[in-house]
Nucleic acid binder design. Structure first.
Length: 475
DNA sequence: GATGCCGGGTC
DNA sequence: GACCCGGCATC
């Protein structure tokens, strides 16, 4: 088990990488070291970064690792063992230990397989992320303050109390997750981490899927989320994750299997879904992709399950506790439904977007040729919401072409729609008027004016006569 | 400067 | 909607 963990760890950061380690099973120690070094490499700032973001990011990666054990043992905030710190961080150890006494449950956590000294050595990554000592906390606080100053969310410390805003709803969920009934803990962001990206496996749960999407689409989103968590945490008492238990849920389609150990779930996947010999220890790591870790707050969970009443839980957020489980479950569900294993949910979304963009880009082009054709313009209109063309503002072509249609009134509506939407995102400056920038280049074809000359103006097409785009000699 | 045509005004 | 034109961009 340990060896596996070790091996797996590297993967946490990168799914592709993850597999390599497997081969190296033979030498645990070496593997470990390698894994550790790798993790460092992968997450450049890992240990040394005080910045929340960095840490968080790293943490995420780590969390992604299939190895729940790792997390439990030292990984996530909850279960960090001082020992790990010592090995990895050296100086940090001391600072850390006060926070997390060796006696803490977190250290013990490790499942039967877990806590080997070796394992601890691997774990380092997570530790780094966390703010360990007071100094770290201070840094964190500073970071949080900074974030708060810029973020609107921060402005609403009430989140914990009121949190009435719909907009905040999304977060609340996450928050609720983080704010389990458990008492004070370490940094909430850790919790958020867990809730967010926990699983590395692509197809998996929503969380992972979302996170993946986010990551692929834009890191900012993730960061925002993280920052948000941070913010909240400040005002709110820190929750302790010790009570959290990591469960492994099989993500295989229509399979709800949940096991308490990664090895168990892997075995399950290997035997049941992959049709491999369960007994054989051999694993290429593929199983890792088919299950996700789920954190369960044992304290609240039991209560919550027994009575669905949110009131019971100890501290601040009884209700939130439930959400944790629910969220995970619900999230994972959709992801599974939509995506097959190994396929990331994100990609699909991305693809969709891209398609849209492409479509948008093309549609405008076609327009120019049929300026007089209202129907076409209409068609465009339907798509118009995609306005993105405006985004491409840099390109005069599209815009101009759209205008070309101008002869028909319809054209304007289309433009308008596009503009309005686009502007929302962009600046007000670009605005209502397409203005000059959008103007299309002059058509190559000769126009009535040139063909007939000023003398025969009566031969011109009406458009030319009206100083509109020539209808007779279109480009 | 000539040309093309957008945006807007008038009827 | 037809007609016209100021004004701007492009050539």
């Amino acid at each position: 088990m340990t060896s596996k963990r070790l091996l797996e760890q590297p993967r946490a950061g990168d799914s592709t990488e993850g597999r390599e380690p497997v081969a190296g099973k033979a030498s645990k120690t070496n593997t470990l070291q390698e894994g550790a070094s790798r993790s460092f490499e992968i997450s450049p700032n890992g240990h040394y970064f005080t910045s929340t973001r960095e840490g968080h990011y790293i943490h995420k990666k780590f969390a992604c690792g299939r190895e729940e054990d790792e997390q439990s043992s030292g990984g996530v905030l909850k279960h960090s063992c001082p020992a790990h710190r010592l090995i990895l961080n050296g100086t940090h150890v001391e600072a850390w230990s006060p926070v997390r006494g060796p006696g803490e449950p977190g250290c013990r956590l490790p499942s039967p397989e877990t806590p080997h000294p070796h394992t601890s050595s691997i774990i380092p990554v997570p530790h780094d992320r966390r703010p360990s000592g007071l100094a770290d906390k201070e840094v964190m606080a500073a970071t949080v303050l900074t974030i708060l100053s810029t973020s609107p969310l921060v402005l609403n410390p009430s989140s914990s109390a009121s949190g009435a805003d719909l907009a905040g709803k999304g977060w609340k969920e996450s928050l609720s997750a983080s704010y389990s009934s458990s008492t004070s803990g370490n940094w909430s962001w850790d919790a958020s981490d867990q809730s967010v990206p926990s699983t590395p496996s692509p197809p998996l749960s929503n969380d992972p899927g979302k996170s993946f999407l986010l990551s692929s689409q834009s890191d900012d989103n993730i960061e925002e989320t993280e920052s948000t968590h941070f913010l909240f945490e400040d005002p709110i008492p820190r929750k302790r994750k010790n009570s959290m238990k990591v469960m492994f849920k099989c993500l295989w389609k229509n399979c709800e299997k949940v096991l308490s150990t990664s090895s168990g779930i892997q075995r399950h996947i290997r035997t049941i879904h992959l049709g491999r010999n369960g007994d054989s220890d051999y694993s290429d790591g593929e199983e890792d992709f088919y299950y996700s870790e789920i954190e369960v707050n044992m304290d609240t969970l039991s209560e919550g399950l027994s009575n669905l009443t949110p009131t019971s839980p100890t501290t601040s957020g009884p209700a939130p506790v439930f959400p944790v489980l629910t969220c995970d479950a619900s999230r994972s569900e959709p992801a599974r439904m939509i995506h097959t294993p190994l396929s990331q949910s994100a990609p699909s979304t991305l693809c969709h977007i891209r398609t849209d963009h492409a479509y948008q880009a093309t549609s405008p082009v076609s327009i120019p040729s049929m300026p007089s054709d209202p129907p076409h313009s209409e068609d465009r209109i339907s798509v118009s919401w995609q306005s993105p063309p405006v985004i491409y503002k840099g390109l005069p072509g599209p815009m101009t072409q759209i205008r070309t249609v101008s002869i028909g009134e319809k054209r304007q509506p289309v433009n308008h729609t596009t503009v309005s939407k686009t502007h929302t995102n962009t600046t007000s400056t670009s605005t209502s008027k397409p203005t000059t920038g959008t103007r299309k280049p002059r058509g190559e074809a000769k126009k009535c004016r040139k063909v007939y000359g000023m003398e025969k103006r009566d031969l011109w097409c009406t458009a030319c006569r009206w100083k509109k785009a020539c209808q007779r000699f279109t480009d």
